[in-house]
Structure formats: structure tokens, C-alpha cells
Amino acid sequence: MLKTLDKYILKRYLGTFITMLLLFVPIGIIVNLSEKIDNLIESKAPFDEIVYYYACFVVNLGYLLFPLFLFLSVIWFTSKLANKTEIIAILSSGISYTRFLRPYLIGATLVAIIFFVIGLFILPKANKGFYDFKYTYLRSKSKVLKTSDIFRQLTDNDFIYASSSNPSLNEAYNFTLEHFDGNVLKYKIEASRIKFKEKDSLGNNIYKLTSYIKRNIGVDGDSIERKVRKELIMNFDIEDLTPVNYMAETLGYNELNDFIEREKSKGSADVNRYLVAKYKRWSTPVAAFILTIIAVAVSSMKRRGGMGVNLAIGIAIAFIFVFFDKIFSVMAEQSGFNPLLAVWLPNMCFAFIAVYLLNNAKR
């Protein structure tokens, strides 16, 4: 059963964190709305979809920034306790520093569990709503279709390419499929647009191709088939032509695992990107414990400069943490750096810092 001290600190811990979220998330909404208002008016987005977009935006922003909000909120209220000599009184009563830290760890556990569940089950759906709305309404006509070139190897013999895609419409543009027999090209299919239509009774994917051209390569000459529109059954999913980040962030955990296995079997060069997204769903909640310990160790001592010094130190540490987290993630996505190590290395480094600062604060 929680003691009076535990209840007091836990109440301040959770209360300050929630207050921080309620203060900064609306600011994020206002800034985003001010940037996107022209696009919203131009695209004539329905009001209910705008509301849903910003609900998804709140989940996305809150999950992205919650470790920093938690870190700064702990520094804020712990510094206030230190300035009022409440911490000195607590420790002078015979309570050890480790015992004083217990309600902080309880609070970190609650926050970590909540955001772990959000990351696994709620965030993917919110990201899908966020990106669907963004691709549909928040891009100018000149930019809506400008995504990176997309190339996939489906099998040993089949390769597909698209210059761009629109995930919200389940379609891609400037599509090409090439079929090889060994090193010999047997036929090539081209279309200005490919759109997923439906699955048939056997579960096969039916696509509608616009400006369809099929070139059959023969020994004595090529034959060409042209159609304004043609429906074909093809053995790939429309998600294969979806931008990498979009897919990684919108799949549930089990779906993401299955998708990673499929991409590995295809020899995709983007597997590391998906693995980074997968591992971050575990590492981000764990950061709540590490940052909480660092925040308490930094702010529990009464300093001559008061709360401002503690906040300055805390903000500096927070930016360093974000910097390392981003650097290692990019290294894993763009090179052969191990994704698991890249995601967990910032946590491990700052865990050592947390232990050092905690021991120093005890003394």
C-alpha cells in the first residue's frame, strides 16, 4: 500500500506530466493548423475528417514527445521540492535516497505501460489516419504524388517499379513489371497508373491498369499488346508500392512482423527501416525510466541558480538524447548498422549516465 510520501510524489509526478501534455499538445495543434489552413481550405476537406486528423495528430505528437515532456515535468516539480527544502526534510527524516526514488519509478512504470499499449495498438491506427488525410488533403497538386521511386523484387524472376504512389487511394503511377527467365527478359508490362480494385474469391489481387502496354520479347521479334484500361490478377500487394515510412508506422505489431518477414524473403533493401520502427515500440517506453532517474538526480539538489539551472541542464540532456537517438536511427536505416543496437544504444548510454548521476546525487 502506498505511503503518504509515495502518494504525494506520485500525484505531483503524474499531475505535472499530464499538465505538460495539456499545455504543449494544443500549441502543436495550433502551429500545425496555422501551417495547413490554406491547404485545408483549398482541398475542401470535410469537417469530420479534419477533426479525426487532429485526433490522430494528438496521438502521434504525444507519443513522439512524451519522453521529453516526462523528463522536463520531473525536473520542474522536483526542482520546486528542492527549492522549498522538502527533499532535505524527507532525507533528514531517515528515508534513504533509494526509498525517496520509489514513487518516481512507480510513476515511470505507469507511464511506460500506458505508452507501450498506445505504441502497439493505438498509434498505428492513428498514424494511418494521419497519413491518409495528409496524402489526400494536405499536399498541393504539384507535390501530392512526388514520393521517392519505389522498386521491389517480388520473386527471383519478377521486378516491379513505380515512380510514385498515393496510399490513401491505393494506386501508383508510372508502373512497370518485368519478368525474367534467368537473365533474359521475357515480357514487360507498363501502365501510367495502377489501382488496386479488389480480391477475387480465391484471394487473388485484381488491379486496374490505365494506358496498359505489354511487350512480349521473342527470338524472331516482339509482340505488343495495348489497352486503354485492363484488369489483371497480379501476385503482389498494393502495400509493396507504398512509401517505406508510411508502411512502417501504420502497421500493428504482428502485421509489422509479418511484413518484415515478407520483405526479407523478397530481398528488400529497406528491411532495416522496418526493424527500426519495430524496435522503437519497445525502446521508447523504456526511456521513461532512464529519463526519470536522470531528471531526479539532476534536480533533487538545491542549486544557487534555482530551477532555471536545473531546467537548462535538463533541456541540454534532452537535446543530446534526441540527437543520439536520431543519429543512430538514421545510421541503421541508411547503412548496415545493426537496427537493434542502433535503437537501444542511446538508452544504454544514458542508462550509464543515469547510474552515475544517481550515485553522485546520493553522496
Rank of each mutant, 00 (worst) to 15 (best):
A287C: 08
L357S: 02
K362S: 05
T155K: 07
N83I: 00
K208L: 15
L185Q: 07
K11M: 15
L232I: 12
E178V: 08
I313F: 14
L21M: 10
F328V: 04
S268W: 12
K188H: 06
I320W: 10
L33A: 11
V117K: 06
K195S: 15
T19Y: 14
F24V: 12
Y161T: 01
I353K: 01
F116S: 10
G314Y: 13
F133Q: 00
I9Y: 12
A288T: 13
D181F: 05
F175I: 03
V343A: 01
K128G: 03
A89Q: 03
Y279D: 04
F236W: 05
E198D: 15
F151H: 09
S73R: 09
V31S: 04
I260W: 00
Y104S: 05
Y131K: 05
T85S: 13
A89W: 08
I206V: 15
I238D: 01
I224R: 02
E86N: 08
A318T: 08
K227S: 11
F159E: 14
E239N: 07
V25Q: 04
G203F: 09
V74C: 06
K266P: 01
F17C: 08
L311G: 07
F337M: 06
K143H: 10
G252V: 01
R262H: 06
A269D: 12
G305H: 10
L357Y: 09
A191M: 09
N235D: 15
E255K: 07
E42Q: 06
M307E: 12
D220T: 07
R152F: 06
N127L: 07
V330G: 04
E86S: 06
E225M: 09
E255F: 05
K141Y: 08
I106V: 12
N166Q: 14
E49H: 01
Y356K: 04
K230R: 11
L22H: 11
I194R: 00
L345P: 00
K230G: 00
K128C: 03
F151Y: 14
S335G: 05
L256V: 03
G308F: 14
Y63D: 02
S142D: 14
A287L: 10
G94N: 07
V244I: 10
P339Q: 04
K11A: 15
I189R: 01
I113A: 14
I290S: 11
V322Y: 13
K214Y: 04
